[in-house]
Simulated assay, not measured.
Amino acid sequence: MNQAALFSGIAERYGAEPQYLWAKYPDYAVFRHAGGKRKWFAVYLPVPAEKIGRKGGAVPLLNLKCPPETVGALRQMRGFLSAYHMNKEHWVSAVLGEADDELIWPLIAESRRLTEK
């Protein structure tokens, strides 16, 4: 999945548009719940490859909240890493283009559910 497909899919499914919060990182985007607390349910981060032990240019990551009991299993799967700049017990990073697209959408839905409280 690429950034355009991710952003349009989140907009269609959840009505959430990307918000760019950091001047220092203009390509990093958060997706929030509408209304009151506006908690984040997904964070898009194109991080430099060397920051996650890889070579090359930017690696597109999507941080998602997961139940702690599933984080370890996800990290064993292709395209999933320990959460970048988030609580590693409750969040995981999916590498867009590597992680199975069919798994990302249910994980986004679960992240949204978990962050509604």
Results as ranks from 00 to 15, higher is better:
residue 1 M to T: 14
residue 2 N to G: 15
residue 2 N to H: 15
residue 2 N to I: 14
residue 5 A to V: 12
residue 7 F to W: 09
residue 7 F to P: 02
residue 9 G to W: 06
residue 9 G to Q: 09
residue 11 A to C: 07
residue 11 A to N: 05
residue 12 E to W: 05
residue 12 E to Q: 14
residue 13 R to N: 09
residue 14 Y to S: 05
residue 14 Y to C: 06
residue 15 G to K: 05
residue 16 A to K: 07
residue 17 E to H: 11
residue 21 L to W: 07
residue 22 W to E: 08
residue 23 A to L: 06
residue 23 A to D: 07
residue 24 K to T: 10
residue 25 Y to R: 11
residue 26 P to L: 05
residue 27 D to C: 08
residue 27 D to Q: 15
residue 29 A to P: 06
residue 31 F to R: 08
residue 31 F to L: 09
residue 31 F to W: 12
residue 32 R to Y: 12
residue 38 R to V: 03
residue 39 K to Y: 13
residue 42 A to F: 11
residue 42 A to L: 09
residue 42 A to M: 08
residue 44 Y to D: 01
residue 46 P to A: 07
residue 48 P to H: 05
residue 49 A to Q: 07
residue 51 K to Y: 01
residue 55 K to M: 03
residue 55 K to S: 10
residue 57 G to W: 02
residue 60 P to K: 00
residue 62 L to P: 00
residue 63 N to E: 03
residue 64 L to M: 11
residue 65 K to D: 08
residue 66 C to G: 05
residue 66 C to Q: 11
residue 67 P to H: 11
residue 68 P to E: 06
residue 70 T to Y: 03
residue 70 T to I: 11
residue 75 R to G: 02
residue 77 M to E: 14
residue 78 R to H: 12
residue 78 R to W: 06
residue 79 G to C: 07
residue 80 F to M: 04
residue 82 S to T: 15
residue 84 Y to D: 00
residue 86 M to R: 02
residue 87 N to D: 08
residue 89 E to K: 14
residue 96 L to I: 11
residue 96 L to E: 03
residue 99 A to I: 03
residue 102 E to M: 12
residue 104 I to N: 14
residue 104 I to E: 10
residue 107 L to E: 02
residue 107 L to N: 10
residue 108 I to L: 15
residue 109 A to E: 15
residue 109 A to S: 15
residue 110 E to F: 13
residue 112 R to N: 07
residue 113 R to N: 14
residue 114 L to A: 09
residue 114 L to N: 09
residue 115 T to Q: 11
residue 115 T to K: 10
residue 115 T to N: 09
residue 116 E to R: 15
